[in-house]
Computed example of a mutant assay.
Amino acid sequence: MPSLCLSAGNPAPEHPRGSVTNLPLPRFVSMKASEGNVRRGPSLTHRIDWVFKRRDMPLEITAEYGHWRRVRDRDGVGGWVHYALLSGTRTVLIEEDMLTVRAQPNKNAPVTAAFELGVVARLGACSPNWCRISAGGYRGWVPKAKLWGVTPQELRD
């Protein structure tokens, strides 16, 4: 029976993985706590550069060291936070003021809501161009390109 193998000239694409969790890097998470110190380095002895003060804010993990994760926010601001302050729950930031939310992933579908710029919404399913989100009791589909906290190629059920 023939076996499948990759040719040396066509290796499988490598995705970087965290040395602690073996999860993909970078990846998105959210703030579990309503407040979290952002440090210059991965320990309590490092100086606090600022404090994140928004529960559920999406963050991108770019590195891992022990119990610490290097994160950045929508503006590229970041540092090291303790992993206990983070959640795997996926949220996104709305990147367009009064973003139209639709009943189906289609630009002609009925409008269910409009979200203001900067709203944090929970992320649901994503197709190649649309994501289902919810916030404030409203839910629906929006163009993926209008969100921060999900990669362009990401698909979610």
Rank of each mutant, 00 (worst) to 15 (best):
P13F: 14
K32A: 10
S30C: 09
H67F: 09
S30V: 07
G41R: 09
P16W: 04
R47Q: 11
R40W: 11
I61V: 15
P13E: 13
T21N: 11
G36V: 11
E64Q: 15
E14P: 00
N37D: 07
I61R: 02
F52A: 10
L59H: 03
E64L: 15
A33E: 01
R47P: 04
E64K: 14
R17A: 05
L23G: 11
L23F: 13
Y65L: 01
N10I: 13
I48Q: 13
D49H: 14
K32W: 05
R40V: 12
A63R: 01
M31E: 00
V29F: 11
V38K: 04
P58Q: 12
G66L: 10
R27I: 01
D75V: 03
P58M: 12
D56H: 15
P24M: 04
H15T: 07
S19W: 10
R69L: 07
G41H: 11
Y65D: 02
M31K: 00
A12C: 05
P13I: 14
G79D: 08
R27F: 01
M31W: 00
R39P: 03
D75T: 07
N10T: 13
S43L: 13
V20L: 05
R54M: 12
D73A: 05
N22R: 12
W50C: 06
A63Q: 03
K53P: 03
W68H: 06
H67W: 08
P42M: 14
R17N: 02
E14W: 06
R69F: 06
E64A: 15
G76E: 08
A12Q: 09
N22A: 11
I48C: 14
W50P: 00
E64R: 15
P26K: 03
D56N: 15
K32I: 02
L44N: 14
V77S: 11
P24F: 05
L25M: 06
S43C: 13
G66A: 10
P16V: 03
D49Q: 14
R74T: 00
M57W: 10
V20Y: 06
A63Y: 01
R54S: 13
E64M: 15
N10P: 02
R47A: 10
V20R: 06
G36H: 04
E35G: 01
P42W: 13
R27N: 00
H15P: 00
R74I: 01
F28K: 00
V71Y: 02
S19D: 10
L44I: 12
R55L: 08
P26C: 04
G79V: 09
R74Q: 02
V71R: 00
P13H: 15
R40K: 12
V38H: 06
S34K: 03
P42N: 14
S43Y: 15
Y65F: 03
P13G: 12
D56S: 13
P11D: 05
G18A: 08
G78Q: 07
A33V: 00
P13A: 15
V71M: 02
P11K: 04
Y65K: 00
